[in-house]
Design a binder for these strands. Structure first.
Lengths: 158, 158
DNA sequence: GTCTTTGCAAATTGTTTGCAGAAAT
DNA sequence: ATTTCTGCAAACAATTTGCAAAGAC
């Protein structure tokens, strides 16, 4: 059984567990995600999906991707929210990102300097710089009883 | 001379060098950026700015932030483009990001596992996971003729 | 048959742009 | 005086939502 088929089976299993209807669209959107090794935008997913199912509407792709995130079979490539953010710190530094309130805080750590980078020969990439994104919960959100906004899904155990 | 004042002076110096007019709005937007240690969205910058200069329009803040990026005194918090992206790889992994075409490619490297993380006692953050964002130029963009201007045009579409 | 999901189109939200007047050099 | 900015409002882009019809269970 291929890796691909295994993932599809797991996906279907999860849908059943979560009481999500197993629609053609969902399967095709998930397959489209599995095919792509980059981190596609919704539009790119739409394109791939519409090669097989030209009828699918963008709205469905949006909803389906969100559903897949809820099911835990895909992730948003960090930074929720659609707004661009800016940083007045122009030096090499790293980030702490609160997964609940989306706060981003800079940090520095000498132990994280000079890390080994992937070889250009292997990846084809010419490496210029790197930064480390640490995800977790900020002090405030640890203290807070539960998310004030019910927008984010619970980790596990429905 | 405070760190703050030094940065402001550098900013004014750069404006002069680049032939950018030194307007109140630009100074106030830059000061707003310096005040904030998170990575504010345009809206958040607007709020801070409007505490001092209620007249400032959102459009100006957008243009000014862009100007500040051009001047090199602030940065966009990783990856331009306003579209959300998704990733079918739900495991711990890292990213290679092409600064020219915005392509994102996953990678893994055992040498980058188990890195020391900032102490919760110091940062207040409870660390859950981390990923490394490596920026550089992908093979295609290294091969491609350099873009006509310093901006991010649309090179080879995916 | 019942409940969920889809597709459409319209509403939101985030970002960019044209232009006349205001400000900077 | 000249050139660059700003503010407004309207264009544009990305995302979300209400609702009737279609599909899954």
């Amino acid at each position: 059984m291929s890796e691909f088929a295994i993932k599809l089976a797991q996906f279907e299993e999860r849908c059943r567990q979560a009481g999500f209807a197993l629609t053609v669209q969902r399967r095709v959107v998930y397959e489209a995600m599995l095919q792509r090794d980059d981190h596609p935008t919704v539009d790119q997913v739409c394109e791939t999906v519409q090669e097989r199912l030209p009828e699918v509407s963008r709205a469905t792709v949006y909803r389906t991707l969100e559903a897949l995130v809820e099911l835990g079979v895909i992730r948003r490539a960090h930074h929720a929210g659609t707004a661009v953010r800016f940083d007045s710190n122009i030096h090499h530094h790293h980030h702490l990102i609160c997964t609940q309130c989306q706060r981003i805080v800079d940090f520095d750590d000498a132990r994280l300097e000079g890390l080994p980078m992937p070889e250009p020969a292997t990846t084809g990439f010419r490496v210029d710089d790197y930064s480390i994104h640490v995800s977790g919960l900020c002090a405030d959100c640890q203290a807070a009883p539960s998310p004030s906004s019910g927008s984010e899904a619970a980790p596990a155990a429905p």
